[in-house]
Amino acid sequence: MTRLSPQAIRLMIPVLSLAVLLAAVFWLQPRAMSYMGMNLLFNLAVPIALATIAQMLVIAVNDLDLSIGTFVSFSACVTAVYLPTAPLVAVAILLGAICVYALIGILIHLRDLPSIVVTLGMSFVWGGLAVLILPSPGGQAAGWLRALMTASTPFVPLAIIASVVIAVVAHLLVMRSTLGVAIRGIGGNARSVARAGWSVMKIKAAAYALSAFFSVLAGMALVGVTTSADANIALRYTLLSIAGVILGGGEFVGGRVSPVGAVIGALTLTLAGSFLSFLRISPDWQIGAQGAVLIIVLGLRLLLARREA
């Protein structure tokens, strides 16, 4: 019998929990077991998956980004306001925002600041900018964006294809590319990466910029799904993305992350919400129940990790 690699074991729990939840949802609501049903279940998970990858990149360098929710909202506002009428302006603003993220990464590295504090501060900046750009809810999705997010692909719903594509791209980027190895290396042991001749500052800046890039994609995908934006549209994403990374087998320190797991984690979280509402759990209990789902999955992981050791 071949021994499973630690990576595969790490991925087992998220895959299993997603499968169990999916089976439960299908059992509760057989209607969900259809092309349209899968799309409805998962199309809002696509932006969450992108935001989770963004969070994962920051967690990979042992930091935590508390501004993802407001930054995705900001990107969504820019997308909804400028992309249809002045695409160049939109691209310029979003590229500028990515540069700002890279600068934040540099700042955190140079001054050795706690990332939680810096990003928490930045969350107010992004939130304020979002309100400035879109004072009252509105804007619209560019035609091509809406068409992309609502495309009816043959056989497999778009939401599933998009999730797989995100997982594969993120996997190649983080697990296979040189940059990805360096980013995870910083999380594991920054000093040895520096000794090997790398510039830790540059890598950190790259990690933050990549994270911002995925957040921007999340904002755009969100506008494509909802057709318009709101300055507060994605505030939940901060916590959802962190939970998604951890649920997907990532760890807060040590550069131990799993892109495929993160996407599965995001899908699981989305599905947990639907599952609870199909169960008709009163809203007062839903937050608690969602927490319980998280704790159960994490508890399982802990058990398995002991076995692994």
């Binding site: 409805l40 279940l41 809002l44 939940r236 989305t270 969602q290």
Partner: peptide, 25 residues
Amino acid sequence: ADAFTTAENQATEQAAQIQNMILQG
């Protein structure tokens, strides 16, 4: 005639809630 309230006052959560209602028929 069932009533559903989202746990957090958030648009993305309510959008998911509406999509669930579609599935619930």
